[in-house]
Amino acid sequence: MIDIDAIVKSIKKLPPFPNVATRALEILDDPDASVDRLISIIQYDQAITANVLKLCNSAYYGLRRKVHSLREGLVLLGNAELKNIILASTAVKFFHKENRGYDLAKGELWKHAVATGIISRIVSNRVTESEPPSLFTAALLHDIGKVVLSRLVDRYFEQIIALVNEGRHSFLEGESEMLGIDHAEVGAKIAESWNFPEDIVQAIRLHHRPEEASDDDPLTPIIYLANIITLSMGIGVGRDGLSYRGKEEVMKRYGLKAKDLQGIVIDFYDEYNKVQDILKLS
């Protein structure tokens, strides 16, 4: 069994979630905050500002006029959407590196993150009255643990995949058995170290174990489904492959059938074509 302390240490070595983004997200959650305060914070971060403008002008939002400034972007898209954009603009740098442990080329884990984000919104649209505010954030970050666990998975891959091939373990359960911790739990610890809200931490932690989520948790089951659909399609999937559990009870909970799944795949295709700009962020 691996020393969990070593994993916690490598979580601490991960760059902090940028302060600018954390503060911007707080302001966007505060109904009394002013646009000026938000802009005064973001404008000093060149990378985030550039990415925000690029995303505002992407086909995904389909705005008729070109957005030239943060102020315009905020007015046209509104707080909730701008929050998603700031988050995506910030998160990308954590996902961009090649991931040897899971054998994901540069950009593949980000592709998986964005696809899961899009599908979570499509699923949410079908099964809930309104989209939970943290949905896109949590969906985008659900596999952040893979970034830290990569090195260990690389070292123990043969043992983990042997467990999977015996037929009783999912890859997640194999990680847990061989490493003493899985990528979902590592991800939750990272989100905690970034002081993310509890609902996001919990959704990351349980994204393969939705049955353990509390009944009033709107995020986890939707992110679970979105991730399983993204995995099924093979988008940003590494050598862990599709070895994760598909749980029929989550489909039943929302009254979803096999045909609905295909409908979600169709909706996804259109949206995915519009987000090529998001995939190219750096």
């Binding site: 999912s170 399983i228 659909i229 995995l231 099924s232 093979g234 492959g241 599709l242 070895s243 994760y244 559990r245 598909g246 749980k247 029929e248 489909m251 059938k257 096999a258 799944l261 295909q262 795949v265």
Partner: peptide, 16 residues
């Protein structure tokens, strides 16, 4: 035509 681990078959677009 691959699939996730799913005994119920509800997720099995690959087989279809």
């Amino acid at each position: 035509g691959a699939q996730v681990m799913d005994a119920s078959g509800i997720f099995n677009i690959g087989k279809r």
